[in-house]
């Protein structure tokens, strides 16, 4: 092999090293879930809230794509997504849960998604949410809050939900 070919190989190695540091798969989240205030109501004096669990009226959407040129080209990379939350002002009794919907848009029907169809709690430590393969766009994520009660002080409770994608 000539010195020129060696230089090309070295360049590729450096290039791939930087690519590897730059992370090969990216995740983007759009949309913000909202909870309708009208769902939090009391039917009669003396009662707790009618619904102790409310589901968001809007969803957020997760898209997974590859940064790596070869992965993007092949559309055959595998990934897994974890979820956790960081609380800004959250009551310990409130339980946040998520699940994904089935609708999504993939590339040439190569995208596959596994798990995440059942409600699961989001805690302050990352937990596995779902996995899949190939670029996939607009995976809907629904949210619900459990344990809503008049025993919780009136306040605006805030948290940030963070999704992380790892390449399998």
């Amino acid at each position: 092999m000539s010195a020129k070919k060696n230089m090309i190989l070295i360049s590729l190695i450096i290039g791939f090293t930087f690519t590897s540091i730059a992370q090969p798969i990216e995740i983007s989240v759009s949309g913000t879930p909202t909870f309708e205030p009208s769902l939090i109501r009391i039917s009669e004096a003396g009662n707790d809230f009618t619904n102790n669990t409310i589901e968001s009226s809007t969803q957020s959407f997760i898209s997974i794509s590859a940064i790596n040129f070869w992965d993007r080209l092949s559309k055959q990379f595998g990934y897994r997504v974890t979820a956790y939350k960081t609380d800004i002002n959250m009551h310990p009794s409130l339980i946040l849960e998520i699940k994904r919907g089935s609708n999504r848009h993939g590339h040439f029907n190569k995208s596959r998604i596994y798990h995440g169809r059942n409600w699961q709690p989001v805690t302050n430590t990352p937990v596995y949410f779902f996995s899949g393969s190939a670029p996939t766009y607009n995976i809907p994520v629904s949210y619900r809050i459990r344990n809503i009660s008049v025993l919780i002080p009136a306040d605006d409770f805030e948290t940030t939900v963070i999704f992380t994608v790892y390449e399998n």
Binding site: V29, T32, I88, V161
Partner: peptide, 8 residues
């Protein structure tokens, strides 16, 4: 991994 999130 690479992360992204949103407020709630």
């Amino acid at each position: 991994g690479q992360s992204q999130g949103h407020g709630l």
